[in-house]
Design a protein around this nucleic acid. Structure first.
Lengths: 347, 347
DNA sequence: ATGTTGTTTTGGAACGTTCCAATTTGTGTT
DNA sequence: AACACAAATTGGAACGTTCCAAAACAACAT
C-alpha cells in the first residue's frame, strides 16, 4: 500500500538541520543517551516537536538489528478467558517499554504456522504463544533457534522453551477438597477432553483429592468443545444419565474444567428447573470476571492473570539483557469459594 | 532486544549468489514479477528454500515506502462481540494479502492515542479503528491526513473518514415490529446509555415502530455499563419498578441494546423464577454465537460480520489502488426470531 | 603554554530491500 | 549478416536509522 504521495517524511536529518546539530546527536537524543548535553537535548526535542517528526522504527530495527515488537499468538480470542489473558499480557508488555501485537490462531495449527511465518518477516523480538492443539515440538524448537519463544498456559511435549503454566493440578485439588469439606460426597468432573494439554493435570488433582477422602468419582463428563455450548450438551447428557440412576448415586457436586463450561452447565440446569448451588454444587476454573457477579456467584479457581504477565515479562527482560532465564515455577492458583458451592444442607 | 548474536541473516544477496543471478532478479522474484524467466524464477526459489531465506519486510517497507501492515484498534476485546468482530476482520484482511495486527484500546481514549502513536512508528498502511468514547474528531482528521483511517461500528461526529456502520435504527425497528406482530403491547427498551454513539439510533428505531402502531414505550432502562453485569442490574431495577405497578402496566417484552445486556437480564429474570420467552419476551442485538444455542434461543438482530470485513476490505483495496473510495451504505441487519420472543399466548 | 583527562559531538559505513536506467540476451525480419 | 524490437537481467543509489572510531571541545593541573 502506497504511502501518501506528496508529503515527504521528516527525518532525523531534517531535525538535525533544524536544531543545528548532526544526525548522530539526534539519534543519541532519540535513544535517551545520557552523554548528550541537556541544553542540546532540549534544542533537538524542540526541533522534533516543531517539525512533527515521527520515529521510523523499521529503519531503526533494520540498522540496529533490534526490535521491541513482541508478538502474542493467542489460541482463541472468542474465548473470554483467552481474551482476558491477552489483554492482561498486552498491558504488562507495554508497561515494560515493549510494544505488543496480537494475532489469533483460532486453535488452528496451520493458521498458527502461517502467522508466525509472517511475523518473522516483521523482525519481532519475541513470540509469546499459547500453542494450538497439535503444535509440533520440532517446529517450536526450530523457531526458538532463531527468535525467543515463550509458551503460556499449555505445554507442548518435547518443546524446550520457557513455559508459563498455572498450577492446574493444585487448582482442581483445592476445588475438590473444598467440595468435600462442604459435605459433598458424590462429586463428578465436568468438561474438557483429552486433546487439551492441561486436561490430564486438572483431572489428576480431582482424583487426588477424592483419594485422600477415600471417595470414588461420581462420573466424568467430557465435552467435545470447551465452550459454553459444550457445557450445555454435557449437562444434558449428565441429567439424562442421572434420570436412570438411584437418587443416591446422582452427582451432587461438579468440578468443572473451566468457568465457561460451568456457565453452559448452569444454563442447562436452570433449563430443567434446577438451581445451581441448591440442587448441584459447582466449582469452575479460571475465575472469569462474570463469575463473581452472577447469582449465585460461581465458585472458581483463580489464576493470577497478572502473574502470567509478570512471568512472561521476567523472561523477556532476561532475554533482552542476555541474562540467564529465571526458573519458572507453576503459577499459584486460589480458590474463590462462592454461592455455587454452599455447605451441604442436612437432608 | 538484540537479535540472536551469531547467526548472520540470509539476505537477498546470498540468495542471488547461490542462484547465480543478481540481487535485482531475486527482488523481482520476490515481488512475483511476470518479467522474470520461469526457469530463473524456479532457480531462485530453490536457492531461497535451500538457504532458509526469510523476507525482511522492514527493509522492504523502508525502501519501498509501502507497507502491507494494517492495524486494527479495537474498543474492548473482553466484549465477545468486539472479539468476534476483530477475529472476522483479521481473517478478511489476511485473505486479501495484507497482514493485520490487533491492539486493544479498552474503551480508553488515552490508550487509543498512545497505541496509534506507536503504530505510526511501525509505518502501518492503514488504521481500522472502532473508536473509544470521547474520541476527538480533530485528532482523527489529523491522523487521517498522514495515513488512511477507517472507522467501524461507531461514528465520531465531525470526523471525515470512511465509516462502516450497521443499520442500527433498522435493526431495532425490525425487532420492535416483530414483538408487536407477536402480539405484545407493553414493550420496553433495555440497556445502553447516551455516551455510546449508536444508542440514539437504536432507540429511534424502537420509537418509530411503536409510533407506527400507536403504542407508548413501556419504559426505558439504561445501563451504566454495556455488559452482562449492567444487564443484571438494570433488570433488577426493572423488576423493582414492576412490583409497584398494576399488572396491566408491567412490560411484557423488551428490546435490548445488545445480546450481552440481554444475557445479564435473562440471568436476573431466572434468578427471580421468571422464564424468558414465557414471562418476558426478549430480543437482543448482535446475534452472538451463543444466542442461537441457549435455551430458549435468544431472538436477535444479526449484523453480518462478514459484511463489515468486506466493506473494510473494499475501502482498503480502493486506497491501495488509488481509486475513488466506495460509498458506504449502512450494513444490512437481519432479524433472527427465536424462542425468546414467541407469539403472545392468549390469557 | 602544554598536557591530561573527560565530556560532547560528528561524518561515514552499514542494515536488506526496491527502484531506476541501462545493459545484455533472445527472436524474428530483411 | 545486420538490424529492430522485445524480453530478461543488472549495478548502483536510495530509504531512515544506528554504530563506530575519531575529532572537537571543555576543564583543570602542571
Amino acid at each position: 500500500m502506497r504511502a501518501k504521495a506528496a508529503k515527504k517524511n521528516v527525518t532525523v536529518i531534517d531535525v538535525a538541520n533544524a536544531a543545528g546539530v548532526s544526525k548522530s546527536t539526534v539519534s543519541l537524543v532519540l535513544q535517551g543517551s545520557d552523554k548528550v548535553n541537556p541544553a542540546t537535548r532540549d534544542k533537538v526535542q524542540a526541533a522534533m516537536a516543531e517539525l512533527g517528526y515521527v520515529y521510523n522504527r523499521e529503519a531503526a530495527s533494520l540498522r540496529g538489528k533490534r526490535s521491541n515488537l513482541v508478538a502474542i499468538v493467542i489460541n482463541d480470542l472468542t474465548n473470554p478467558y483467552s481474551a482476558q489473558l491477552a489483554v492482561g499480557l498486552e498491558a504488562n508488555i507495554r508497561r515494560m517499554g515493549l510494544f505488543s501485537m496480537l494475532v489469533n490462531s483460532g486453535e488452528d495449527k496451520n493458521t498458527q504456522t502461517e502467522l508466525v511465518q509472517s511475523l518473522k518477516e516483521y523482525n519481532v523480538a519475541a513470540f509469546v504463544i499459547c500453542p494450538a492443539p497439535g503444535t509440533d515440538a520440532n517446529w517450536v524448537n526450530e523457531l526458538a533457534g532463531s527468535v525467543p519463544v515463550i509458551h503460556i498456559m499449555r505445554e507442548v511435549a518435547g518443546a524446550i522453551v520457557p513455559t508459563v503454566l498455572p498450577d492446574n493440578q493444585g487448582g482442581t485439588l483445592a476445588a475438590t477438597r473444598h467440595l468435600i469439606a462442604q459435605g459433598y460426597r458424590r462429586i463428578g468432573f465436568f468438561g474438557g477432553n483429552q486433546s487439551i494439554s492441561d486436561y490430564g493435570e486438572r483431572l489428576k488433582g480431582f482424583h487426588m483429592a477424592l483419594a485422600e477422602a477415600s471417595l470414588e468419582a461420581a462420573g466424568i463428563w467430557e465435552t467435545a468443545e470447551t465452550n459454553r455450548h459444550g457445557g450445555r450438551l454435557a449437562m444434558a447428557a449428565l441429567l439424562n444419565d442421572a434420570a436412570l440412576l438411584h437418587p443416591n448415586h446422582v452427582p451432587e457436586a461438579l468440578v468443572c474444567f473451566t468457568d465457561i463450561v460451568a456457565y453452559g452447565a448452569i444454563e442447562q440446569l436452570r433449563q430443567h428447573g434446577l438451581v445451581p448451588g441448591r440442587d448441584m454444587a459447582i466449582v469452575g476454573f479460571d475465575d472469569l470476571e462474570d463469575s463473581s457477579l452472577m447469582t449465585p456467584a460461581l465458585s472458581s479457581i483463580a489464576i493470577d492473570a497478572d502473574a502470567v504477565g509478570a512471568s512472561v515479562c521476567a523472561v523477556l527482560d532476561a532475554i533482552r539483557k542476555g541474562k540467564e532465564l529465571p526458573t519458572l515455577g507453576r503459577l499459584e492458583v486460589a480458590l474463590k469459594a462462592r454461592g455455587s458451592s454452599p455447605a451441604k444442607q442436612a437432608v
